[in-house]
């Protein structure tokens, strides 16, 4: 009996100590980690839009974040969008499942605070009144150049081989894929981990909406010329015109699977397919509602 008590005591102390060490490390590193993630995200967004340190985005380019929430009141589910308005204030617009406009609430929140998830949900909850619960779904970044829409950036998450893969997808205004970047993944290094390589992720580039809707994975080897074109950004052996012509040729082709990682390839393909399809569907509804209700958004 005494033995059991000693064991319990020592194990508890060991756990507490380990927890203390990990907790301290978390407190000291969390801020820097979040900052790194944010910086990285910004860099990825700009690079997907074709800007870099050498070729910075002009001042006329602006990014507007639209947050989507699921609002439930009893059994009734509606989709809510937190939209920035032209005068700098925010509105929360709810749309029911058939796509019809339900209600519009002004939200008292500043642009800086809207970025913080907790403050945002509190402000929305206060705006729509009691009795409704909201759940964050996703966000979309609408990119405008001189007030005209040029692209959409979709951060997303989908299941991979072992756990979730988070990715950032850039679409142009016709929902053609501009680029895909894998933000975080835990696929097997050397096999599924290859999804971050240019020769895989660049295959999605330039695929129009209609192709993406029925995109599949094929297990035939990647043609050598296509591979060279996909990696042109890294190796630079090919002229831009040649790359464009080869990419045009494979524009409507399915995705070539990675060797030894068919499941990871399929996960990314179906994940991207799902993101684009759902986004295009929701965008059409949101645009119609915005036009009907004369909501002055800056995009």
């Amino acid at each position: 009996m005494k033995n059991i008590l000693t064991i319990i005591f020592r194990l508890t102390v060991a756990c507490l100590l380990a927890g203390l060490v990990m907790g301290t490390a978390f407190v000291f590193t969390n801020k820097a980690k979040k900052h790194n993630l944010h910086v990285n995200e910004q860099k990825v967004m700009l690079s997907l839009l074709g800007y870099s340190a050498k070729n910075p985005a002009p001042a006329s380019v602006a990014m507007h974040e639209v947050y989507r929430y699921i609002v439930s009141q009893g059994d009734v589910l509606t989709t809510g969008y937190l939209l920035p308005l032209r005068d700098g204030s925010f509105s929360f617009v709810t749309i029911d499942l058939t796509g019809a406009f339900v209600a519009r609430y002004p939200v008292a929140i500043s642009a800086e605070k809207a970025v913080e998830a907790d403050e945002r949900s509190q402000a929305i909850a206060a705006a729509i009144g009691a009795g409704k619960t909201i759940r964050y779904a996703d966000q979309t970044i609408v990119v405008t150049d001189g007030g005209k829409r040029t692209a959409y950036l979709l951060p997303g998450r989908f299941p991979g081989f072992k756990t979730f893969i988070s990715a950032m997808l850039a679409l142009d205004k016709n929902c053609t894929i501009l680029g895909l970047e894998i933000m975080e993944n835990e696929e097997d290094p050397g096999l599924g981990g290859e999804i971050v390589q240019d020769y895989f992720k660049n295959q999605f580039k330039g695929k129009p909406l209609d192709t993406v809707k029925k995109l599949e994975v094929v297990k035939t080897p990647l043609p050598e010329e296509y591979r060279k074109a996909l990696e042109a950004g890294k190796r630079g052996q090919m002229g831009a015109a040649e790359v464009a012509s080869i990419e045009e040729q494979y524009k409507d082709h399915d995705i070539y699977a990675l060797t030894g990682a068919t499941i990871s390839s399929r996960s990314v393909t179906s994940g991207v397919k799902g993101m684009v399809k759902k986004f295009a569907y929701r965008l059409a509804i949101l645009d119609r509602v915005l036009a009907e209700q004369h909501i002055a958004v800056p995009f």
């Binding site: 060490v21 990990m22 490390a25 978390f26 000291f28 590193t29 969390n30 801020k31 820097a32 980690k33 790194n36 990285n40």
Partner: peptide, 12 residues
């Protein structure tokens, strides 16, 4: 865990 967090924070 500690090495993972420290690397993520200071050596991205």
């Amino acid at each position: 865990t500690v090495i993972d967090m420290v690397l993520a924070a200071y050596l991205p």
